[in-house]
Design a protein around this nucleic acid. Structure first.
Lengths: 229, 229
DNA sequence: ACAAAAGTGTTTAAGGTACACCCATGT
DNA sequence: ACATGGGTGTACCTTAAACACTTTTGT
């Protein structure tokens, strides 16, 4: 006897994306204004529905691309939100994903999307449904992940200064860090490449630019190194 | 205009449970032998389908109870597994949960369930579909969680010895720990209640029994304490 | 008396934290 | 010459890790 699942309930599976960016000062999230009922006019995460012929990662990437033009960024599945009445229109389970994008690099794509807007994380408006809870999960995960994996670089330009990196971590962790201790720690990890080039925008003296050396990092990981910041 | 979702695809949402236990020596997982095709006769996680009128936590609890008679144990949502062809019968997305149960306390309920069997974590058979990947996720999460939250106690009897607690952590972390360092660390956390009572089963001298003092732990957490083992 | 597990502290190494001044440059 | 951000090192303290012997009691 072959089991079949005909008698089981089927549901709609939504994917909602918490999109983080960083603008040299603040951690930001990208929101859209809903242009349909219910909750028309309120701000919301970017979302869509899983299709029959794709897996969740593909759906999250498709939805992100469809709503922002952005492709190929760091995304991670977070958690499911499944309260029976969470969506007033119809029973829907939502899978939250979060994404890290470099705002500067993707400014172009985004200006074409009129309803999307960056908000400072701390000043974001209230969101529809249970989207605020999703954001809370996401920031929590982001803090953990950036402390144990070198994914913070996804939010920075390819070349960045120590100062930018420190400000990024301060924004994510919502805490001030000591400049010397931070640099000592980063340097002790030995996963950055210091360039000869300087960034002259932020000061007269100029500050050296660095790049994340992914090859070196991977080699160290294979040798048992563990990232911890 | 009210949006409706009629044109969207619906899917089956399964819930699969990784059930951990501990028997004084080894970490164990509870598996069932499938009695239907496909993969009849192979071992599998306990699973079922989400129903229309319940959320995922409720579904996970219902499924666990239905297949084992067990209620009211620690459960946590893990991750979704959504490859398009992961289930050969029909497109199914599976939400993995893991549960922690005290084997001794629930021995009765389980003996009545003939197809369920405890396996040492390290000696478990190969599982159907992507269940082995689910188990990998679960052990990883369990290691992290037991290092940062006092949930290990869920796997022990209410009263336990330091030795049992140490063996539990050794089993979860798959590593030997130093007895003196372990006890010093636990004591420094100051979240256990030492009883006057001794357990006389494991030695002639007998060893003191302890309980997790949840009230004390919660008070300490409220005061900014953070558990780390 | 001996076997078997329980219980107990100290020393050392490593990592984390706090902290203040000089440098280079454009205006 | 001065204002602005960049860059650098050390002392102290806390936490982690290594390590061995005595106690109790049933047989």
């Amino acid at each position: 006897m072959i089991h079949n699942y005909n008698s089981e309930d089927k549901v709609l599976l939504a994917v909602d994306c918490i999109i983080f960016g960083f603008d040299e000062e603040d951690l930001k999230i990208l929101l859209v204004k809903r242009d349909f009922e219910p909750e028309r006019g309120k701000w919301s995460l970017m979302g869509g529905f899983l299709k029959r012929n794709e897996d969740l990662d593909q759906a999250a990437n498709r939805i992100l691309h469809h709503l922002t033009g952005i492709n190929n960024v760091y995304m991670e599945q977070l958690y499911n939100f499944s309260k029976v009445d969470r969506d007033p229109v119809e029973r829907t389970i939502s899978v939250a994903y979060y994404a890290l994008i470099n705002i500067a690099e993707h400014k172009q794509e985004l200006t074409e999307n009129y309803s999307a807007k960056w908000f400072s994380f701390s000043e974001a408006p209230q969101l529809i449904f249970d989207h605020d809870r999703m954001v809370q999960h996401a920031i929590h995960r982001l803090r953990y992940r950036t402390s144990t994996k070198p994914i913070g670089f996804e939010l920075l330009p390819e070349k960045f200064t120590m100062r930018q990196l420190q400000k990024l971590y301060e924004a994510i962790l919502n805490d001030k860090l000591d400049k010397r201790n931070f640099i000592n720690k980063i340097n002790s990890l030995d996963i950055l490449l210091k360039l000869d080039e300087k960034d002259m925008n932020s000061s007269r003296k100029g500050s050296f630019l660095y790049m994340f050396d992914e090859a070196k990092y991977k080699k160290k990981i294979a040798d048992g190194f563990s990232f911890r910041l």
